[in-house]
Design a protein around this nucleic acid. Sequence first.
DNA 1: ATTGGATGTGTAACCGGTTACCCTTTTTCA
DNA 2: TGAAAAAGGGTAACCGGTTACACATCCAAT
Lengths: 324, 324
Amino acid sequence: MASIKDVAKMAGVSVATVSRVLNDKGYVGQHSREKVEKAIKELNYKPNEIARSLFKKHSNTIGLIVPDIMNPYFPELARAVEDTASKLGYNVILCNSDENKEKEQAYLDVLKQNYVNGIIVSSNTLTAEQIEALNIPIVSIDREISKGLPTIVVENKKGAKAATHFLKSKGRKRIGHIRGTAGVVNAEERCGGYREAVAEEPWFTESYIVNGNYDMESSIDATRELLGRHPDIDGIFAANDMMAIGAIKAAYQLGKKVPEELAVIGFDGIVLSSVMIPELTTVAQPIYEMGELATTVLVNLMEQQPMEKTYYTLEVELIERRTT
Amino acid sequence: MASIKDVAKMAGVSVATVSRVLNDKGYVGQHSREKVEKAIKELNYKPNEIARSLFKKHSNTIGLIVPDIMNPYFPELARAVEDTASKLGYNVILCNSDENKEKEQAYLDVLKQNYVNGIIVSSNTLTAEQIEALNIPIVSIDREISKGLPTIVVENKKGAKAATHFLKSKGRKRIGHIRGTAGVVNAEERCGGYREAVAEEPWFTESYIVNGNYDMESSIDATRELLGRHPDIDGIFAANDMMAIGAIKAAYQLGKKVPEELAVIGFDGIVLSSVMIPELTTVAQPIYEMGELATTVLVNLMEQQPMEKTYYTLEVELIERRTT
DNA sequence: ATTGGATGTGTAACCGGTTACCCTTTTTCA
DNA sequence: TGAAAAAGGGTAACCGGTTACACATCCAAT
């Protein structure tokens, strides 16, 4: 591969001049510029980003840490981040943390050692101190780590409340809730929204809430338990779409018709929800938009642009489909 | 951040010695080693990977180029690649090419400029010349680019044939095929397998094959057309799962019951196929395993390990579920 | 005519590691 | 006992860029 020295030699100038035309910075005479440009073309010269990074102390790369890219929420997010980053001239390093504290810290270290400019992270094990210690711009997405940190989340509580009210408006009399993973902030919030919506109902007791794990399997079991406890339940609000699917599977297993005997509404609006049969009614997050926003906020942070706002709570949209 | 010089100063040795203990290479006395290790711990020193990369001419990173991470086939692949790479000490840069020639070439250039050690790519627009010109280890996955290049694919033809035979064994008399994207090698192969399986059938004509685009929407239209042409079709082999889902949707729209009136079998075995309702019968690729294998092959290539084989054609598994 | 700012360009230090090379000391063994 | 080999460790060049600084030239304003 040709280096800047080769270009300089061919153009008959110094490396400094080549660097100047490369970066369009400093004074360069018309004549020199042309010679350099010609040499660059002739040698098909591409500057070495690693050498650049060493000097600049950052590598035009951003780290994306997600729990698991196989979780259907994240591919869309990853795509949005990569699209936006790419457009702005950054690469994306993908990291799967499995919500594991050690893995996360290890990735943070590796990313820092690789001089990433910034990090987008979806995590609930990370602490504000850990992040501040890193001293790299970070934006948190889908999950709030701390009020002070740049964050992109959605109206979890509001959406959950709307979902539950929607079930009521459809004439459902007994509505159960399958909670998300214990300890995850958005699971608390969604559960809170559900609670607010049913608080006044005479039939409501805590036993209408069961714990799921944000995945399908846990939800199948949870739903069977819930339906066993309360056979009169005719509506379920699941804290995410995968659990809503689990609920539907459980209903089928128990011989209950969806939506006739049991209406189900999910949360997230993953692609799967519109693809499955029957199509799932859900409270959709603007996932792509969130990824986009997270990336632009992060890049602004990295480039030290002045910003009026770094904490965004986005609106959520209830999409009615076939399961309600 | 502490640098190697700080460590050297604190330990009272030269940077060369620090480097030697870091890399466990060359002679280092017990006494020096201990002093250096103590200094490293005390300063929480982590070597700067970028500086290392500059000298080594590679960055312990591999590029992963996929058409679109939102396509449900790829998250599992990406996960396998990242897991394996991470285990072996490499980072993964994620690139979405949208099957676009220019984007792909641009990414290849960027990756090269970033001194990636190797690249895993799923593409059918790339040519062998392009890849050889790059002069970086590459393994192709899911799609063959050239016989000579390291490649991980599956028995497309065999699987397709098995799928079609399976439909026959279930008593289906007229079996249609929804082809994958024109020009994609595996679409040709799967179509070839179908052809072989139905070649002897008296009813078979080319009109039992329709073109899809490996996505759900194209398949809905294609299926409606196919079923319009041949209302007697009672079995469909779709060249991938997303198209199989489209076929099922189309069947529902037309009032046909699946599987009673129309059996549907897909190909790929994406997570979605087991999650949807009804669960999809499919010819499953060992996606995770493919990603794993691709990564280990690539790493062996990068590390110049001797290898007996770099072209793998993996077995495929027919999983019977509810749609047949 | 003088001077000071703008323009143009090269030299060399620097980013933070690795390692070739050299020198000294210790060990091994004929 | 002496020479060769092994062990230990420092100096400085190098990877491929960027940029501070020095120096030269040119032009406009005084």
